[in-house]
């Protein structure tokens, strides 16, 4: 179990851990931005945009993440787009997660009763006011739960990036296993690191959920 503190393994492990955190954070930002944009398309009154978002989501939700990584890593250089492995991983992970974010947002907006928006509009509130003051605060509460499971899954999914040349925790596991350390000892430390990351995300969401807890 002490393998982490031998032969400078700790540096390797720490770098991998930081890379995982970095990758997850960057992908989370991309996923949120893209997800909000897609959700806006998805609930817009313009049929063309709605169809576009639906098709996009169906494609990305039903494609295995490994295949996305494969396509980005091996496909993009073929059309002379040369990106670093890290950027490729962020693209694949972000686009994949964005489709889940979009679905969560859309179903959150759909949980707001129609009467709320009608009441707001009959008070003379503009579209922006209705959205910001009435619809989104209510949708936000419904969204937090499912959103937390999307973002807890994100660091877990980021492990696949390790198989595509990003030096994060999975590749640390590979390296240490190849150096001949006991496989389950390596597994123990890597598992612990991932548990820490997802526990942190879960805790953060729980605090967020408690903050706007209002009796309705």
């Amino acid at each position: 179990m002490g393998i982490l503190f031998e032969d400078g393994n700790f540096g390797l492990f720490r770098d991998g851990f930081l890379r995982t955190v970095e990758l997850s954070a960057a992908s989370a930002v991309l996923a949120l931005l893209l997800g909000v944009l897609l959700a806006a398309f998805r609930v817009s009154p313009v049929p063309v945009l709605r169809t576009f978002a639906t098709v996009w989501i169906e494609i990305f939700r039903n494609t295995p993440l490994t295949l996305l990584f494969f396509a980005v890593t091996f496909g993009l250089p073929r059309v002379d787009v040369h990106l670093s492995a890290f950027v490729c991983a962020v693209l694949a992970l972000g686009c994949y997660t964005a489709s889940f974010v979009c679905e969560v947002l859309r179903s959150g907006i759909n949980t707001v009763p129609l009467g709320q928006a009608e009441a707001a509009r009959s008070l003379g509130m503009t579209f922006g006011q209705t959205l910001v003051q009435v619809v989104l605060p209510q949708a936000g509460r419904a969204v937090l739960g499912p959103m937390s499971s999307v973002f807890i899954a994100l660091p877990r999914n980021s492990a696949i990036a390790g198989a595509f040349n990003v030096a994060e925790l999975y590749s640390v596991q590979q390296t240490l296993s190849e150096r001949g350390y006991a496989i389950f000892a390596v597994f123990f430390w890597i598992a612990l690191a991932y548990l820490c990351v997802s526990a942190t995300v879960a805790l953060g969401f729980r605090r967020l959920e408690h903050r706007p807890a209002v009796a309705r």
């Binding site: 877990r156 390790g162 590979q174 390596v186 598992a191 548990l195």
Partner: peptide, 11 residues
């Protein structure tokens, strides 16, 4: 549930 699948499969 908290374990990355890839880590487990690889181990």
């Amino acid at each position: 549930r908290a374990m990355p699948l890839l880590i487990m499969i690889f181990a």
